[in-house]
């Protein structure tokens, strides 16, 4: 049960490679999720019934279906619909791109709801005052409403960022060689289950804690001064 003897240069290289995939998928999905979530939240604010209906439908679809099902639909289902040349291009990039899309879309729904919740906490008079100054709808959002809403939504956004990070582990179900996948492979090769799993657990824990710590730092840095 010696973890340190398990961490040979070879094994560390393998683990590092897996972690790099985890990191890449996390960052790419996060950018997609945040961008799309913010866009949908703003669309919801500005649009009429149709826009709000579309946003509500998207959120309901993404949130009521497990990520595994999303992954399987995107990985096995969607390519079958596309013309052959596109299919071969996708095969070259395997599961990473698919994971980013599936996880990014799913978490976009969570981020959208967090941001919308932030919007609801800002009195409508803030937007009104900004418009009365001559700021356009988007300028008012950008400079007055969103900065305040993000500060309020920050704890929820941090929680869901940690969730997004942990969700990348599911990409192993479609063969992506991220951290959990390579740990399982190492475990299969060396039969040193306890050491392999412990290393993975510690890495996940450290990064989760680091993300939460970063969130706390952001909250302190951007705190709106009180009376």
């Amino acid at each position: 049960m010696n973890v340190f003897s398990f961490l040979t240069p070879d094994h560390v290289a393998v683990l590092a490679r897996g972690l790099s995939f985890t990191a890449a998928i996390t960052i790419a999905s996060w950018l997609l999720a945040m961008g799309l979530g913010m866009a949908l939240a703003i669309l919801n604010e500005s649009g009429g019934r149709v826009a709000r209906g579309v946003v509500a439908a998207f959120i309901a679809y993404q949130r009521n279906i497990p990520v595994v099902a999303h992954l399987l639909l995107w990985y096995f289902g969607v390519p079958a619909l596309l013309p052959k040349p596109v299919q071969s291009w996708i095969n070259v990039h395997n599961g990473e791109l698919i994971s980013v899309i599936a996880i990014g879309l799913c978490l976009a729904a969570y981020f959208c709801e967090d941001i919308r919740s932030g919007f609801r906490s800002i009195p409508a008079t803030q937007h009104e005052a900004a418009r009365a100054l001559g700021l356009s709808f988007l300028q008012s959002m950008r400079w007055v409403v969103v900065p305040q809403a993000l500060r309020i939504a920050l704890p929820a956004l941090v929680n869901h960022t940690v969730l997004l990070f942990k969700t990348t582990a599911l990409a192993m179900a479609i063969g992506v060689a991220e951290l959990t996948y390579v740990v399982r492979e190492l475990e299969n090769q060396t039969f040193r289950t306890f050491e392999a799993y412990s290393v993975a657990t510690v890495v996940y824990l450290m990064i989760s804690l680091a993300l939460m710590g970063a969130g706390a730092m952001l909250a302190r840095r951007y705190r709106i001064p009180a009376r």
């Binding site: 008079t125 005052a129 900004a130 418009r131 009365a132 100054l133 007055v144 709106i224």
Partner: peptide, 15 residues
């Protein structure tokens, strides 16, 4: 609107 100044009852400053 930029040419019209409006002052609200509850100030509505940006916190």
């Amino acid at each position: 609107r930029a040419n019209i100044g409006f002052v609200f009852q509850s100030f509505n400053l940006f916190p």
